[in-house]
């Protein structure tokens, strides 16, 4: 019988793994966090760039290829039948630092004003009618973190929800793509072939989560790839690697000891907008009914 772990332990393990993987980077990032403001951004992005360049033997240039060749392709010998990726977000741990958003922007060269991942802040107060007053913020997608709350509500409950492409199994975005440029890989990732995409924008309309956008430079649909260029080389997505609290956990459901697999089998999890039956492979812990 496998030992029972709760989600905190699991994500704690993930964090420890992150530390082992790059303790120096991790500590630097934590130090960066304490400095705050724009300085964090400069330091953080510098470090993350450094990480990508430092690991050049295994890590290709950013996936968007804006600064180099297009490299979403997995390495030679990679068998996508051997993997089935999944993602777990424990919202109870998110502190809204924005490291993930910055890491994603740097790793994938995401254009300004568009987001492959973002963080939403929910501030909720109960009102006289026994109902909730809700305010939601995501200033610049949380790229620069969040200011202290200026909400006029007597907030009784507040939390952050990181969001991204849910890499749905039954995804409406690949269904509507007229040319098959949006597709699902066998290892469970939804990707866009930007050499094939005609830029019609139908997938952007079809995604219920607002995860897609039309890249203003390439004029093709763009979205989170779970850093396919990294995960197929045994690395974790940039956002997971950058998360200082273990909110974001990346896993491979074909590994028996996988933290996400264990969490899915032992913990109560949710997905976003389950009524749409898109079957997301991005699972959440601690979602509130106000989160769509």
């Amino acid at each position: 019988m496998s030992k029972l772990k709760n989600i905190t332990e699991i994500t704690e393990e993930a964090r420890q793994e992150a530390e082992r993987e790059g303790r120096r980077d991790f500590l630097f990032r934590l130090a960066g966090l304490t400095i705050g403001g724009v300085f964090v951004n400069i330091l953080g992005s510098g470090l993350l760039r450094g990480e990508a360049e430092g690991a050049d033997d295994v890590t290709p240039t950013p996936a968007s290829g804006r600064q180099g060749q297009v490299t979403n392709l997995p390495p030679k010998g990679y068998n996508w039948e051997d993997h089935l990726y999944a993602y777990l977000i424990d919202t109870t741990k998110c502190i809204g630092c924005g490291m993930c958003v910055r890491a994603c922007k740097n790793e994938n060269d995401v254009p300004d004003g568009f987001y492959r991942t973002w963080i939403e802040e929910y501030l909720i107060a109960t009102n006289d009618h026994g109902d909730f007053d809700v305010q939601v913020f995501s200033p610049n997608g949380g790229l620069f973190g969040f200011q202290a709350s200026q909400s006029p509500l007597a907030v009784s409950k507040g939390f952050f929800v990181p969001k991204m492409c849910n890499h749905c199994d039954n995804t409406p975005c690949t269904q509507v793509c007229p040319v098959g440029a949006s597709y699902q890989t066998k290892d469970g990732v939804v990707l866009v072939d930007k050499e094939q995409c005609i830029g019609c924008g139908y997938c952007i309309q079809a995604c219920p989560y607002g995860s897609r956008f039309l890249d203003p430079v390439s004029h093709t649909a763009s979205k989170c790839t779970w850093c396919y260029h990294r995960i197929t080389r045994g690395l974790r997505p940039a956002c997971v690697a950058a998360c200082p609290t273990g909110t974001r956990v990346f896993g491979d459901l074909k590994r028996t000891d996988d933290p996400v697999l264990v969490a899915l089998s032992k913990t109560r999890v949710q997905v976003l907008q389950p009524n749409l039956l898109t079957k997301p492979r991005c699972y959440y812990v601690g979602l509130d009914l106000e989160v769509r």
Binding site: V179, I198, H219
Partner: peptide, 16 residues
């Protein structure tokens, strides 16, 4: 409207 009008015929060549 298309981001890549030169690929418009893909709708007929490689339809999904």
């Amino acid at each position: 409207h298309l981001g890549h009008p030169e690929r418009a015929f893909n709708i007929m060549i490689t339809p999904n």
